[in-house]
Structures are given as C-alpha cells and as structure tokens.
Write a protein that binds this DNA or RNA. Structure first.
Lengths: 169, 169
DNA sequence: ACCTTGAGTTGCTTCATGCAACCCACTACT
DNA sequence: AGTAGTGGGTTGCATGAAGCAACTCAAGGT
C-alpha cells in the first residue's frame, strides 16, 4: 500500500466540456454506439438482431443498449408476455441522430468507399438518388464553412479553469 | 502452453464492413478523434495547443495524430528548422469532416445543451445566426428521413458470409 | 553551466472489449 | 414427464486502450 492513492483512471468524460460536439460524443461517441443507432434507424429493434447484424459481443451490446436507454435515445418496451420480452425503439431524440449518421455516411461515400457507395438514398418526393446538401436556415444559400463564423452562445463557457483560453464550440 | 492459441482480442475493426458509416467511424470514431478534428477545423495546428485545449494525455494525442496523418485527414509539415518542429494541417479530406462535426454540434445544441448552445454560427453572407438544414441535392426540398429509401449502390455487399442478410448501408 | 520550450516516448495502472460459457423463463417436441 | 430450443441477457477471464507522471531530446536563451 502506497501513501498516495492512485487516481482511478477511467476514460475521460466529455460531458462537462462547454461544447455541443463533445457532449454529443459523450452520448454516441463510443465504439459500436453509432452503428447501433444506424441499425435502429434502419428498423432493428431486438437484441438478437442487433447482435447478429453487428457481430458485437453480447455483453458490450447489453451495456450500450442500457446506456442509450438511460440517455433517452432508445426506450425499452415489452413486445410479448409469457415470457416477457423487450425491444428497443428510438425516441425523437434518437431519431434526430439521423442527421449525424447521414453526414458520416456521405463522408464515407466520398472518401473511404473505393467501390462506390454501398447504399444510396432514393428521395421519394422527387424520385432521384440524392445526397443531403446543408443550406442556411435563414437565407437558403448552400453553407460553406469559410462563410461561417463561430460566436458565443448563451451556454458559452471558456475552456480550463481561468478565462485565458478561447472558445472551442 | 495450450494447444489452442488464444485469439488476440483487439477492438473490432469496422473497416471491412460494407457501410460508409462504419468505414467513417474507423477513421474518426475513436475517443478524442472527433474533438481533435474539431479543434483543427477551429485553427489549431500544434501538438502543445491540442494538448492544452483538450486536456488529452500526450501519448494518446501522439497516437491519434499519427493515425489521422496516416489516414490522410491531417498532414504533418515543418514550421521551423533548428530545431525542426512540425505542425498538423487539415487536408481536403479532413476539412470535409466539417459536415459531420456540424451535425454533431446541432444535435448536441438541441438535446444536450441545457444552457443553450455554447457556440453559434454567424453566416457572413446573410449576417444571421443560422443552422444548417439538409436539403435534397436534386429538388432542393428539405430532406425528411421518412421520405428517403435506402437502395443498393455499386459498393453494395450483403452482411455476413452468406447472402441471407439484408443490407445495412 | 543551467533553465526553458516544443514535441514526443516510456512505464505502469486501471478500464474497456472480445470471447466463450453459462443462466433463466418459458414454449415445443417426443 | 423429460428434453431441446429461443430470446435475452450475465459472468469470468485475457488482452488492448486510456490516463498519468516522469523522462528524453534538440536546440535556444541567459
């Protein structure tokens, strides 16, 4: 036994960072989690189906599902009695992750899909295979990163203990 | 020594899954990696600055930067001789991750920012604080997940060994 | 002859993942 | 009645990853 106790070294949490990117990652940033959400958006609901499609370890899947339920991304609802069995359904909060998954998919289609996109999206409204283009919520122009300047919002807090740092967003 | 060798249990790679979401996560899905990219998009370039802003362990930061360089998201370029020092700059591939980070930020602003968005985006073209809205690349209508049907693309491959499974995207 | 700076590397400790085996509540067959 | 099957997990163990502090290395400054 040493006089000084060793600090418990668990993975750093992003939850307290004053940044919505970091806080989102706290919810869906772990290994496997985004793929679970992807499959849920695709219609998967049951433990066994997640497990079979993903090839994820059962204990890890159980832990991730619990966590997503706790964070309000999924709800666990019974789908039969005798024996009682549950399935996992997306909440509105979970369904809203569609944008994140779509952005990831499009980046992957462009940069890490040597054989072309494995899946394409058919827009039923116009009947074409399409991609998502981000436009300005106010003027409708296509958004280009260079034309956007980050400014402080109501939840702003400087990084670190003092105020000597700039914002991160 | 046992007759059967224990399998090396490293974290499952997503690289071989026929899905652009999974392949993207292979590049930017690890703990800390998206925050490094966020800061890089914000203008951070040097090891010490990443380290100080993120509070990440130095060995982990070094490993992540190496990985991002290897995957072509960053390039390592000297910024001075005597002694030679390098900085990390985003490539086009890296800059294109802006969409993913923006989607994460907007989700976080909506669902996990009790005090409101820490950072807002000012669109210099129209002068307003705005958000990104995904619209159809063909018809320009706002995209709603229910109106999009996933179809097979050129890179399609069924999950698993046989063809008995359906696509994942 | 030291102290400082930027950028890592090394050692060691604990956490997270992967894997296989096991458990439990029932239902269905024989 | 006894046994096998099914869906949904839990338990134990081995190894990779994350956190932390200390150390290195090549200059430059004083």
């Amino acid at each position: 036994m040493q006089p000084t106790t060793l600090a418990a070294v668990r993975r750093t949490s992003f939850a307290d960072m004053p940044c919505s990117v970091a806080r989102s990652l706290e919810v869906v940033g772990e290994w496997w989690t985004p793929l679970i959400v992807r499959d849920a958006l695709f219609g998967v609901r049951r433990f066994e189906e997640f497990q079979a499609r993903l090839g994820i370890a059962r204990n890890v899947l159980a832990q991730r599902l619990d966590q997503l339920v706790e964070e309000g991304v999924l709800v666990r609802v019974p789908y039969q009695e005798r024996p009682v069995r549950h399935e996992y359904r997306l909440t509105d909060k979970g369904r809203d992750l569609w944008h994140v998954l779509t952005a990831l998919r499009q980046w992957g289609d462009r940069w890490v899909a040597p054989d072309g996109p494995p899946v394409r999206l058919l827009h039923e409204r116009c009947g074409r295979t399409v991609t998502a283009v981000p436009v300005c919520s106010h003027c409708g122009e296509e958004l280009r990163p260079q034309e956007l300047r980050p400014t402080r919002g109501p939840g702003f807090r400087p990084i670190g203990v003092g105020d000597e740092h700039i914002a991160t967003g």
